[in-house]
């Protein structure tokens, strides 16, 4: 009767060995990078191949084929020009979409080393923000603004980080500067003019990004309001006005879902273009 049992034990032991060996093999600390597959435009001039693979990568990125997009951008880096900053920028953008923040940071850091553009600092700041490394993010947005103090994108992003840190006044200052920079307040004033002709076009074309500071200001003032409601409720305890309790509860819920600032959706990615 014992022989079958021994056989079963041996089989189970063998299976255990197999199942435990697999993760051990998989834990190679320095995996070999997989070379990209770059079969098109072989033998063509570098600028032609670079343009092709940037286009291909962007096409894949637009259709959500992130692995293929990474392959395309890696072709540029690996096979054509390891100093071509936009390929690192584009690949970092895809990696960010895939929540592969560490590799995205590596690529942005290389791009910064290759020229230190506003876009590279801004976009790396976004990744730091997503990782809740707010000091590093602020440092990057500062660098971006040192290159263009009127960058609406960088002002917007720094305002978000300030708000996440509870620095509401600094956040409001950045947003107001963004409004002043674009002059969108004049467009708004025109749209609000009671004597304005119905259906008339705005005084100038504008980008929706220019309107975003107003949205963020609304969120921040709501946060202010919540702070004040909570101060009132702390002082009054259970005797507080139920309307304020209700309003505070509603706002808290909003900050948990619709108006949360830490999910990256309020951050603006910067355009980039190579030098030359």
């Amino acid at each position: 009767m014992k022989r079958p049992f021994i056989v079963i034990v041996l089989i189970v032991a063998s299976l255990t060995l197999l199942t435990t060996a697999a993760p051990t093999l998989a834990q190679d600390p320095t995996p070999t990078p997989i070379p990209p597959i770059c079969l098109n435009y072989v033998g063509q001039p570098d600028d032609i191949r670079t343009s092709y693979y940037m286009g291909e990568g962007l096409g894949y990125y637009a259709s959500g084929e992130f692995s293929r997009a990474i392959n395309s951008f890696t072709c540029v880096i690996f096979e054509i020009d390891s100093n071509y900053a936009p390929a690192y920028m584009a690949r970092a953008l895809v990696l960010t979409q895939r929540s592969d923040y560490e590799r995205a940071l590596e690529d942005y850091t290389i791009a910064i080393g290759l020229g230190g553009s506003l876009a590279a600092y801004n976009n790396r700041g976004i990744v730091y923000t997503l990782q809740r490394e707010y000091e590093e993010a602020l440092a990057d947005f500062d660098q971006a603004l040192s290159r263009d103090p009127q960058s609406v994108v960088a002002l917007n992003n720094r305002a978000v980080v300030y708000a996440l840190q509870g620095e509401f006044e600094l956040s409001i200052a950045d947003l107001e500067q963004a409004i002043e920079t674009t002059g969108i307040d004049a467009v708004l004033a025109d749209l609000q003019d009671p004597e304005r002709e119905q259906g008339a076009p705005p005084i100038r074309d504008y980008d929706l990004i220019e309107a975003q500071p107003y949205a963020l200001l609304g969120i921040i003032y709501s946060a202010f309001a919540l702070d004040n409601y909570q101060a009132y409720l702390r002082l009054t305890g259970s005797n507080g006005d139920f309307r304020i309790q209700s309003a505070a509860g509603a706002l808290e819920s909003r900050f948990t879902f619709d108006l949360r600032l830490d999910d990256g959706t309020w951050l603006l990615v910067a355009d980039f273009a190579p030098e030359g």
């Binding site: 343009s51 092709y52 286009g55 291909e56 293929r68 603006l268 190579p274």
Partner: peptide
């Protein structure tokens, strides 16, 4: 603009860029 979103690529080789875009769509 649609495919590149926030990316704007400056290139002197426009046709290969669009062929790259087309190939990505064709692959799908």
């Amino acid at each position: 603009e649609q495919v590149s979103g926030a990316l704007s690529i400056r290139t002197d080789a426009v046709a290969p860029f669009f062929i790259g875009l087309g190939d990505a769509a064709f692959a799908d």
